[in-house]
C-alpha cells in the first residue's frame, strides 16, 4: 500500500498545537497539585515540600461536614438518576420507533443543552415557592436538583449499551419460559450492568463538582465541598484548598478510570 491515508498527525504544526493544548489543560492542575505540598501557606511562592496541609484539611470540622454532605448528595442523586435513566433508556430503545422519539430524546437530554444558570434560577424560584408552602428546608431540594441534571449523564452510557445488545437474547429468554420480569432480571439487567455502573459513576462525579445549581438551590448551612471551597478562596487563598482539590481530583480520576474500564470491556 503505497498511498498513505490522510492523518491530521502529519499536518505541519500539529505537534506544536498538541503540546500547547496539553500544557494549557494540565499545567494549572499540575501546579495546583504541586502547591498542595507547599510548606508555606501561599499558593504562589514555593517554600519547600510538606504534607502538612492534608492533616490540616482532614482535621477541619467544616471540611469534613461539607465533604460528607457532598458525598451524601452525590450518592443519593446518582442512584436516583441512574434508576430513572435506566428506565428511560429501556423505554426509548425497547419500543418500536415512534414519531415522538426525537422529542423524548431531547427532553431527557435537556439539562445538557439549557444553560446551567437558567436551570439554577428556575429551580431557585420553583423551590422557593415549595419551601414557603411546605416549610421543608432539608437536603431534598439539592438532591432533587442534582438528580435532574445527572440524568442525561447516566442515560448516555446505558442507552449505548442497550443499543449494542442483541434483542434475540430477550426473545430466547422468553422462549425458555422466562416471564418479562425474569427476562429483565436474568438477561437484560446483567448485560446492562456495565452501562448502569458507568452511568452511575458519571452521575456521581457530575453531582460532586456542581457549583452553579448548588449555589442557587442550597439553603443556609447547606454548603457542599465545591461551594465551601469557593467561599474559602474568596476570603483568603490557602494551600488547604489545594490539598482538598488534589484529593477530589484523585477520587475523580479513580472513578473515571473505573468508568473507562467498565465501558471498554465488552463481552
Amino acid at each position: 500500500m503505497a498511498r498513505r491515508d490522510f492523518s491530521a498527525a502529519r499536518l505541519p504544526g500539529f505537534a506544536t498545537i498538541a503540546i500547547t493544548v496539553f500544557v494549557a489543560l494540565y499545567a494549572p492542575i499540575l501546579m495546583l497539585v504541586a502547591y498542595s505540598f507547599n510548606a508555606g501557606d501561599s499558593i504562589a511562592i514555593w517554600e519547600g515540600f510538606s504534607l502538612k496541609w492534608y492533616p490540616v484539611a482532614w482535621n477541619n470540622a467544616e471540611v469534613r461536614e461539607v465533604t460528607l454532605r457532598s458525598l451524601t448528595i452525590a450518592a443519593t442523586a446518582s442512584v436516583l438518576s441512574t434508576t430513572v435513566a435506566t428506565m428511560a433508556a429501556l423505554g426509548t430503545t425497547r419500543r418500536r420507533q415512534t414519531r415522538g422519539q426525537t422529542f423524548i430524546y431531547l427532553l431527557i437530554n435537556q439539562p445538557l443543552m439549557v444553560p446551567e444558570i437558567v436551570t439554577a434560577v428556575a429551580l431557585l424560584i420553583f423551590f422557593a415557592s415549595i419551601k414557603v408552602a411546605t416549610g421543608y428546608q432539608g437536603l431534598g431540594y439539592l438532591i432533587a436538583a442534582h438528580t435532574a441534571f445527572c440524568i442525561p449523564f447516566a442515560y448516555l452510557p446505558i442507552r449505548a449499551r442497550l443499543e449494542g445488545m442483541d434483542l434475540t437474547l430477550e426473545i430466547a429468554a422468553g422462549d425458555l419460559y422466562a416471564s418479562s420480569w425474569q427476562t429483565f432480571r436474568h438477561v437484560t439487567l446483567p448485560l446492562l450492568a456495565p452501562g448502569i455502573g458507568a452511568g452511575m459513576m458519571l452521575a456521581f462525579v457530575t453531582s460532586l463538582d456542581d457549583v452553579v445549581i448548588t449555589l442557587f438551590v442550597k439553603s443556609a448551612g447547606q454548603d457542599t465541598l465545591p461551594t465551601y471551597m469557593l467561599a474559602q478562596i474568596r476570603r483568603s487563598v490557602s494551600a488547604e484548598v489545594n490539598a482538598i482539590s488534589t484529593l477530589l481530583l484523585l477520587l475523580t480520576v479513580l472513578l473515571l478510570t473505573a468508568f473507562f474500564l467498565l465501558t471498554r470491556k465488552r463481552d
Binding site: D166, T168, L169, I171, A172, A173, D175, L176, V187, P190, L191, D267
Partner: peptide, 13 residues
C-alpha cells in the same frame, strides 16, 4: 416449544 436460533442467541454472561 423451544427454539434453536439462527444466531444461537446464547446468553454471554
Amino acid at each position: 416449544v423451544n427454539t434453536v436460533f439462527q444466531s444461537y442467541a446464547l446468553f454471554p454472561h
